[in-house]
């Protein structure tokens, strides 16, 4: 625990992107947020906590890079972002893990990774409220939670459960981002009001987004990225 605290001590803010449901766009929002902050001159780290389905490296097109060793592990910089992911070690092979094993991977990653002076560490969390989320709460005391959901009733209900948990254990919740909005609806905004947390705004469904994956420069020019920048103003 002391080693983990030491590794995290030079990080100013930790923003944990969560959503409860899978496929709501957490990884794209977390990575785009990292890119935008980095372009603004901040020192940014991105930690991909989705051990079963890491995606950040694909969005950033991280190829042929590896962390370097030096009394710990120093993550490589990709488009100005210090990216840490299990993908460096397992590649595109499956990593089947059970509960405690997930916790162990997370603890090891935090204990070995040397982020150095970092303004923002963005954490891309997997779906659900299992080990990864509970371990972030336990081990990353600076964590502020950014909730991502789609306006689908199915996603909203799962997200709502997660928010209730976060509020119950009194961790900072930055607010809710409504992602993949196709038509105007008040569902997410009203739910945020009901949960007494901030509605941070919406990100429109961008039909061109898929073509920008693995091309961060192009990604930053999308309407999606513009919407993320607007969210950032509110955060």
């Amino acid at each position: 625990m002391a080693t983990i605290n030491k590794r995290l001590k030079d990080i100013k803010r930790v923003i944990v992107v969560v959503g409860g449901k899978g496929g709501v766009g957490k990884s794209l929002i977390a990575t785009t947020l990292s890119l935008v902050l980095s372009k603004r001159g901040h020192s940014v780290g991105l930690l991909d906590l989705d051990f079963h389905g890491p995606s950040c490296h694909t969005i950033l097109d991280a190829k042929g890079v590896m962390p370097t060793e030096g009394e710990g592990i120093i993550p490589p910089e990709i488009h100005g972002i210090k990216l840490m992911s299990v993908v460096y070690y397992v590649g595109e092979k499956p990593l089947p893990l059970r509960g405690t094993e997930i916790s162990n991977v997370f603890t090891e990653l935090l204990a070995i990774t040397k982020w150095g002076r970092t303004d923002y560490l963005i954490v891309d969390a997997p779906p659900g409220m299992g080990e990864e989320i509970l371990d972030v709460i336990r081990l990353m005391k600076k964590g502020e939670f950014l909730i991502v959901t789609t306006p689908s009733n199915l996603a909203l209900k799962t997200m709502s459960r997660l928010v209730k948990l976060l509020l119950e254990i009194r961790v900072p919740v930055l607010g809710i981002v409504e992602n993949m909005r196709i038509t105007k609806t008040k569902l997410t905004e009203e739910l945020a009001k009901g949960l007494d947390i901030k509605y941070l705004g919406y990100v429109s469904f961008d039909y061109n987004l898929e073509g920008c994956i693995s091309n961060p420069k192009k990604l930053l020019k999308t309407k999606f990225a513009d919407n993320v920048k607007n969210i950032l103003k509110v955060v």
């Binding site: 299990v86 070690y89 893990l97 162990n104 991977v105 070995i112």
Partner: peptide, 30 residues
Amino acid sequence: EAIHFIPELAHTFIRCPRCGSPDFAVTRGR
């Protein structure tokens, strides 16, 4: 080297010698 950094990555590279399952526990020596 991967296992050296994060022992649980054994689940990517090691399989049960009898049935080939990746679902095993490290009972000692982790």
